[in-house]
Design a protein around this nucleic acid. Structure first.
Lengths: 146, 146
DNA sequence: AAAGCGACTTGACAAAATGAACTTTAAGCA
DNA sequence: TGCTTAAAGTTCATTTTGTCAAGTCGCTTT
Protein backbone atom coordinates (compact mmCIF):
# COMPACT_ATOMS: atom_id res chain seq x y z
CA UNK A 1 0.00 0.00 0.00
CA UNK A 2 1.28 3.34 -0.99
CA UNK A 3 -1.86 5.36 -0.56
CA UNK A 4 -2.02 5.51 3.18
CA UNK A 5 -4.21 7.60 5.40
CA UNK A 6 -2.08 10.15 7.14
CA UNK A 7 -4.35 11.22 9.90
CA UNK A 8 -3.58 10.90 13.60
CA UNK A 9 -6.41 8.49 14.26
CA UNK A 10 -6.25 4.93 15.54
CA UNK A 11 -8.89 3.83 13.12
CA UNK A 12 -7.22 5.31 10.06
CA UNK A 13 -3.83 3.92 11.05
CA UNK A 14 -5.30 0.51 11.75
CA UNK A 15 -7.02 0.53 8.38
CA UNK A 16 -3.65 1.26 6.81
CA UNK A 17 -2.61 -2.16 8.06
CA UNK A 18 -5.70 -4.25 7.46
CA UNK A 19 -7.82 -2.08 5.20
CA UNK A 20 -6.90 -3.35 1.80
CA UNK A 21 -8.72 -6.00 -0.05
CA UNK A 22 -8.51 -9.56 1.29
CA UNK A 23 -6.40 -8.75 4.35
CA UNK A 24 -9.15 -9.12 6.92
CA UNK A 25 -10.53 -12.18 5.21
CA UNK A 26 -7.12 -13.83 5.26
CA UNK A 27 -6.89 -13.12 8.96
CA UNK A 28 -10.36 -14.53 9.37
CA UNK A 29 -9.37 -17.77 7.71
CA UNK A 30 -6.38 -17.99 9.98
CA UNK A 31 -8.49 -17.32 13.03
CA UNK A 32 -10.59 -20.26 11.89
CA UNK A 33 -7.53 -22.46 12.06
CA UNK A 34 -6.38 -22.52 8.48
CA UNK A 35 -2.70 -21.85 8.39
CA UNK A 36 -1.10 -22.90 5.16
CA UNK A 37 -1.18 -21.19 1.82
CA UNK A 38 -3.32 -23.95 0.34
CA UNK A 39 -5.89 -23.93 3.14
CA UNK A 40 -6.29 -20.19 3.12
CA UNK A 41 -6.60 -20.18 -0.64
CA UNK A 42 -9.26 -22.85 -0.48
CA UNK A 43 -11.23 -20.85 2.06
CA UNK A 44 -11.11 -17.67 0.01
CA UNK A 45 -12.62 -18.62 -3.26
CA UNK A 46 -11.33 -16.44 -6.05
CA UNK A 47 -8.44 -14.73 -4.31
CA UNK A 48 -5.71 -13.96 -6.85
CA UNK A 49 -2.68 -15.96 -5.82
CA UNK A 50 -0.30 -13.04 -6.18
CA UNK A 51 -2.42 -11.04 -3.75
CA UNK A 52 -2.49 -13.89 -1.30
CA UNK A 53 1.28 -14.06 -1.19
CA UNK A 54 1.66 -10.29 -1.19
CA UNK A 55 -0.81 -9.99 1.70
CA UNK A 56 0.87 -12.73 3.70
CA UNK A 57 4.13 -10.87 3.33
CA UNK A 58 2.79 -7.52 4.35
CA UNK A 59 0.79 -8.94 7.26
CA UNK A 60 4.00 -10.53 8.44
CA UNK A 61 5.90 -7.26 8.00
CA UNK A 62 3.25 -5.57 10.13
CA UNK A 63 3.55 -8.17 12.85
CA UNK A 64 0.08 -9.68 12.56
CA UNK A 65 1.29 -13.11 11.51
CA UNK A 66 4.50 -15.11 11.54
CA UNK A 67 5.61 -17.68 9.05
CA UNK A 68 7.71 -20.74 9.71
CA UNK A 69 9.20 -23.29 7.38
CA UNK A 70 7.69 -26.70 7.99
CA UNK A 71 9.10 -28.49 4.97
CA UNK A 72 12.64 -27.61 4.00
CA UNK A 73 13.09 -28.47 0.44
CA UNK A 74 10.31 -27.31 -1.57
CA UNK A 75 10.01 -24.52 0.96
CA UNK A 76 6.60 -24.74 2.62
CA UNK A 77 5.45 -22.33 5.25
CA UNK A 78 2.95 -22.36 8.04
CA UNK A 79 1.39 -19.12 9.07
CA UNK A 80 0.34 -18.27 12.62
CA UNK A 81 -1.43 -15.31 14.08
CA UNK A 82 0.62 -13.25 16.50
CA UNK A 83 -1.05 -11.78 19.55
CA UNK A 84 -1.79 -8.64 17.55
CA UNK A 85 -3.35 -10.78 14.87
CA UNK A 86 -5.45 -12.70 17.37
CA UNK A 87 -6.66 -9.47 18.87
CA UNK A 88 -8.30 -8.61 15.58
CA UNK A 89 -10.84 -11.28 16.35
CA UNK A 90 -12.95 -8.69 18.10
CA UNK A 91 -13.08 -6.66 14.91
CA UNK A 92 -14.02 -9.75 12.92
CA UNK A 93 -16.66 -10.69 15.45
CA UNK A 94 -18.17 -7.22 15.35
CA UNK A 95 -18.37 -7.38 11.59
CA UNK A 96 -20.01 -10.78 11.84
CA UNK A 97 -22.53 -9.53 14.38
CA UNK A 98 -23.31 -6.50 12.29
CA UNK A 99 -23.79 -8.68 9.23
CA UNK A 100 -26.03 -11.05 11.12
CA UNK A 101 -28.24 -8.15 12.12
CA UNK A 102 -28.28 -6.07 8.96
CA UNK A 103 -27.56 -8.14 5.87
CA UNK A 104 -30.59 -9.36 3.96
CA UNK A 105 -29.19 -12.85 4.10
CA UNK A 106 -27.29 -13.82 7.17
CA UNK A 107 -24.82 -16.61 6.85
CA UNK A 108 -23.32 -17.01 10.28
CA UNK A 109 -24.23 -16.35 13.86
CA UNK A 110 -21.76 -15.77 16.64
CA UNK A 111 -23.04 -17.99 19.40
CA UNK A 112 -22.46 -19.11 22.92
CA UNK A 113 -21.07 -22.62 22.55
CA UNK A 114 -22.84 -23.93 25.64
CA UNK A 115 -26.35 -22.87 24.72
CA UNK A 116 -26.21 -22.10 21.02
CA UNK A 117 -27.77 -18.67 21.39
CA UNK A 118 -26.34 -15.61 19.65
CA UNK A 119 -24.16 -13.41 21.81
CA UNK A 120 -23.97 -9.62 22.03
CA UNK A 121 -21.19 -7.20 22.60
CA UNK A 122 -20.62 -5.15 25.71
CA UNK A 123 -18.13 -2.66 27.03
CA UNK A 124 -16.61 -3.23 30.42
CA UNK A 125 -14.72 -0.87 32.68
CA UNK A 126 -12.14 -2.86 34.66
CA UNK A 127 -11.63 0.09 37.04
CA UNK A 128 -15.28 0.38 38.03
CA UNK A 129 -15.87 -3.33 37.56
CA UNK A 130 -19.03 -2.75 35.63
CA UNK A 131 -20.61 -2.82 32.23
CA UNK A 132 -20.58 0.50 30.44
CA UNK A 133 -23.37 1.56 28.10
CA UNK A 134 -22.50 3.03 24.72
CA UNK A 135 -23.80 6.39 25.86
CA UNK A 136 -21.25 6.36 28.67
CA UNK A 137 -18.28 5.92 26.36
CA UNK A 138 -16.00 8.77 25.44
CA UNK A 139 -12.96 9.04 23.25
CA UNK A 140 -9.93 10.62 24.92
CA UNK A 141 -6.76 11.75 23.21
CA UNK A 142 -3.91 9.69 24.49
CA UNK A 143 -0.85 11.43 25.95
CA UNK A 144 1.45 8.93 24.28
CA UNK A 145 0.28 10.08 20.91
CA UNK A 146 1.28 13.68 21.52
CA UNK B 1 -17.45 -1.00 -5.73
CA UNK B 2 -17.76 -3.34 -8.60
CA UNK B 3 -15.28 -5.92 -7.46
CA UNK B 4 -17.29 -7.53 -4.78
CA UNK B 5 -16.54 -10.57 -2.70
CA UNK B 6 -18.92 -13.31 -3.65
CA UNK B 7 -18.60 -15.60 -0.71
CA UNK B 8 -21.43 -16.59 1.63
CA UNK B 9 -19.85 -14.97 4.65
CA UNK B 10 -21.17 -12.16 6.81
CA UNK B 11 -17.79 -10.58 7.01
CA UNK B 12 -17.14 -10.59 3.28
CA UNK B 13 -20.61 -9.26 2.53
CA UNK B 14 -20.27 -6.57 5.16
CA UNK B 15 -16.93 -5.55 3.72
CA UNK B 16 -18.62 -5.20 0.34
CA UNK B 17 -20.62 -2.39 1.92
CA UNK B 18 -18.07 -0.64 4.08
CA UNK B 19 -14.77 -2.06 2.90
CA UNK B 20 -13.68 0.46 0.36
CA UNK B 21 -11.46 3.35 1.08
CA UNK B 22 -12.86 6.19 3.22
CA UNK B 23 -16.24 4.56 3.89
CA UNK B 24 -15.59 3.62 7.49
CA UNK B 25 -13.86 6.90 8.19
CA UNK B 26 -16.83 8.82 6.84
CA UNK B 27 -19.10 6.82 9.12
CA UNK B 28 -16.72 7.53 11.96
CA UNK B 29 -16.94 11.26 11.37
CA UNK B 30 -20.70 11.01 11.33
CA UNK B 31 -20.71 9.00 14.53
CA UNK B 32 -18.72 11.88 16.02
CA UNK B 33 -21.56 14.21 15.16
CA UNK B 34 -20.38 15.74 11.91
CA UNK B 35 -23.20 15.61 9.44
CA UNK B 36 -22.71 17.97 6.57
CA UNK B 37 -20.48 17.59 3.56
CA UNK B 38 -18.24 20.42 4.77
CA UNK B 39 -17.83 19.06 8.29
CA UNK B 40 -17.04 15.57 7.14
CA UNK B 41 -14.58 16.90 4.59
CA UNK B 42 -12.88 18.98 7.25
CA UNK B 43 -12.53 15.96 9.51
CA UNK B 44 -11.05 13.78 6.79
CA UNK B 45 -8.03 15.67 5.66
CA UNK B 46 -7.14 14.84 2.11
CA UNK B 47 -10.26 13.01 1.01
CA UNK B 48 -10.86 13.59 -2.69
CA UNK B 49 -14.15 15.44 -3.02
CA UNK B 50 -15.44 13.16 -5.72
CA UNK B 51 -14.94 10.17 -3.46
CA UNK B 52 -16.71 11.88 -0.60
CA UNK B 53 -19.78 12.45 -2.70
CA UNK B 54 -19.61 9.01 -4.28
CA UNK B 55 -19.32 7.38 -0.84
CA UNK B 56 -22.17 9.39 0.62
CA UNK B 57 -24.33 8.23 -2.26
CA UNK B 58 -23.43 4.58 -1.94
CA UNK B 59 -23.72 4.58 1.84
CA UNK B 60 -27.19 6.01 1.39
CA UNK B 61 -28.03 3.41 -1.25
CA UNK B 62 -26.94 0.73 1.22
CA UNK B 63 -29.10 2.15 3.97
CA UNK B 64 -26.36 3.21 6.35
CA UNK B 65 -27.14 6.90 6.16
CA UNK B 66 -29.98 9.14 5.04
CA UNK B 67 -29.74 12.56 3.53
CA UNK B 68 -32.16 15.43 3.89
CA UNK B 69 -32.27 18.80 2.26
CA UNK B 70 -31.90 21.54 4.83
CA UNK B 71 -31.46 24.45 2.47
CA UNK B 72 -33.58 24.43 -0.65
CA UNK B 73 -31.94 26.62 -3.10
CA UNK B 74 -28.40 25.85 -3.37
CA UNK B 75 -29.32 22.33 -2.40
CA UNK B 76 -27.59 21.53 0.89
CA UNK B 77 -27.94 18.21 2.58
CA UNK B 78 -27.60 16.92 6.08
CA UNK B 79 -26.55 13.34 6.56
CA UNK B 80 -27.68 11.14 9.42
CA UNK B 81 -26.74 7.64 10.41
CA UNK B 82 -29.52 5.11 10.19
CA UNK B 83 -29.78 2.40 12.82
CA UNK B 84 -27.63 0.16 10.65
CA UNK B 85 -25.06 2.93 10.43
CA UNK B 86 -25.11 3.51 14.16
CA UNK B 87 -24.61 -0.17 14.77
CA UNK B 88 -21.26 0.04 13.04
CA UNK B 89 -20.00 1.90 16.08
CA UNK B 90 -19.01 -1.41 17.61
CA UNK B 91 -16.78 -2.10 14.64
CA UNK B 92 -15.25 1.36 14.88
CA UNK B 93 -14.74 0.94 18.60
CA UNK B 94 -13.02 -2.40 18.13
CA UNK B 95 -10.69 -0.87 15.58
CA UNK B 96 -9.95 1.95 18.00
CA UNK B 97 -9.26 -0.47 20.83
CA UNK B 98 -7.02 -2.58 18.65
CA UNK B 99 -5.13 0.50 17.55
CA UNK B 100 -4.74 1.70 21.10
CA UNK B 101 -3.18 -1.60 22.04
CA UNK B 102 -1.06 -2.37 19.01
CA UNK B 103 -0.09 0.76 17.12
CA UNK B 104 3.30 2.21 17.96
CA UNK B 105 1.67 5.55 18.54
CA UNK B 106 -1.77 5.56 20.00
CA UNK B 107 -3.93 8.57 19.36
CA UNK B 108 -7.17 7.82 21.10
CA UNK B 109 -8.45 5.78 23.98
CA UNK B 110 -12.00 4.53 24.34
CA UNK B 111 -12.86 5.40 27.90
CA UNK B 112 -15.52 5.20 30.50
CA UNK B 113 -16.86 8.73 30.72
CA UNK B 114 -17.43 8.57 34.47
CA UNK B 115 -13.94 7.50 35.46
CA UNK B 116 -11.78 8.20 32.42
CA UNK B 117 -10.31 4.70 32.35
CA UNK B 118 -10.07 2.70 29.13
CA UNK B 119 -12.79 0.15 28.60
CA UNK B 120 -12.60 -3.39 27.25
CA UNK B 121 -14.85 -5.47 25.11
CA UNK B 122 -16.86 -8.46 26.28
CA UNK B 123 -19.32 -10.92 24.85
CA UNK B 124 -22.59 -11.45 26.61
CA UNK B 125 -25.13 -14.22 26.25
CA UNK B 126 -28.62 -12.82 26.90
CA UNK B 127 -30.03 -16.34 27.24
CA UNK B 128 -27.65 -17.43 29.98
CA UNK B 129 -27.35 -13.91 31.33
CA UNK B 130 -23.63 -14.11 31.60
CA UNK B 131 -20.38 -13.00 30.09
CA UNK B 132 -18.94 -15.40 27.56
CA UNK B 133 -15.20 -15.86 27.12
CA UNK B 134 -13.75 -15.85 23.62
CA UNK B 135 -12.96 -19.53 23.97
CA UNK B 136 -16.64 -20.22 24.51
CA UNK B 137 -17.72 -18.59 21.28
CA UNK B 138 -18.64 -20.59 18.23
CA UNK B 139 -19.78 -19.65 14.77
CA UNK B 140 -22.97 -21.33 13.63
CA UNK B 141 -24.37 -21.34 10.12
CA UNK B 142 -27.67 -19.57 10.12
CA UNK B 143 -30.74 -21.32 8.70
CA UNK B 144 -31.92 -18.12 7.07
CA UNK B 145 -28.83 -18.04 4.94
CA UNK B 146 -29.49 -21.47 3.46
C1' DA C 1 10.21 -40.35 -18.09
C1' DA C 2 6.20 -37.93 -18.07
C1' DA C 3 2.56 -35.81 -15.93
C1' DG C 4 0.85 -33.44 -11.79
C1' DC C 5 0.79 -30.58 -7.78
C1' DG C 6 1.90 -26.91 -4.35
C1' DA C 7 3.48 -22.50 -3.87
C1' DC C 8 4.54 -19.19 -5.84
C1' DT C 9 6.10 -15.10 -9.70
C1' DT C 10 5.40 -12.37 -13.85
C1' DG C 11 3.03 -9.43 -16.68
C1' DA C 12 -0.98 -7.62 -19.37
C1' DC C 13 -5.35 -5.61 -18.47
C1' DA C 14 -9.32 -3.62 -15.73
C1' DA C 15 -11.00 -1.10 -11.83
C1' DA C 16 -10.52 2.22 -8.18
C1' DA C 17 -8.32 6.16 -6.01
C1' DT C 18 -5.97 10.65 -6.45
C1' DG C 19 -5.47 15.50 -7.53
C1' DA C 20 -6.50 19.34 -9.95
C1' DA C 21 -9.45 22.07 -12.51
C1' DC C 22 -14.00 23.46 -13.50
C1' DT C 23 -19.53 24.33 -12.44
C1' DT C 24 -23.27 26.28 -10.20
C1' DT C 25 -25.74 28.99 -6.92
C1' DA C 26 -25.67 32.23 -3.47
C1' DA C 27 -23.94 35.41 0.09
C1' DG C 28 -20.71 39.47 1.45
C1' DC C 29 -19.32 43.84 0.47
C1' DA C 30 -17.46 48.27 -1.58
C1' DT D 1 -24.03 46.80 -9.75
C1' DG D 2 -20.20 44.30 -10.17
C1' DC D 3 -16.43 41.63 -7.81
C1' DT D 4 -14.91 38.12 -4.77
C1' DT D 5 -15.51 34.21 -1.94
C1' DA D 6 -17.47 29.88 -0.61
C1' DA D 7 -20.07 25.41 -0.44
C1' DA D 8 -21.04 21.39 -2.69
C1' DG D 9 -20.28 19.20 -6.12
C1' DT D 10 -18.66 17.15 -11.19
C1' DT D 11 -15.24 15.93 -14.76
C1' DC D 12 -11.17 14.06 -16.28
C1' DA D 13 -6.20 12.70 -16.72
C1' DT D 14 -2.92 10.08 -14.07
C1' DT D 15 -1.40 6.79 -10.69
C1' DT D 16 -2.16 2.89 -7.78
C1' DT D 17 -4.54 -1.47 -6.90
C1' DG D 18 -6.59 -5.57 -8.05
C1' DT D 19 -7.64 -9.38 -11.44
C1' DC D 20 -6.73 -13.08 -14.55
C1' DA D 21 -4.05 -16.15 -17.10
C1' DA D 22 0.15 -18.18 -17.83
C1' DG D 23 4.67 -19.65 -16.46
C1' DT D 24 8.37 -21.46 -13.10
C1' DC D 25 10.66 -24.57 -9.84
C1' DG D 26 11.20 -28.46 -7.09
C1' DC D 27 9.36 -32.43 -5.67
C1' DT D 28 5.77 -36.83 -6.09
C1' DT D 29 3.15 -39.96 -8.22
C1' DT D 30 2.37 -43.23 -12.01
Amino acid sequence: MKNLYEMPCNIAQTLNIIGDKWSLLILHEMAAGRNTYAEIRKGLDGIPTNLLSARLKSLEADGLITSSLYVEHPPRYQYQLTEAGQDLEDVLNCLMLWGAKHLRTCYKELSHRDCGEPVEIQYYCPRCGKVVEKSELSVLSSKEGM
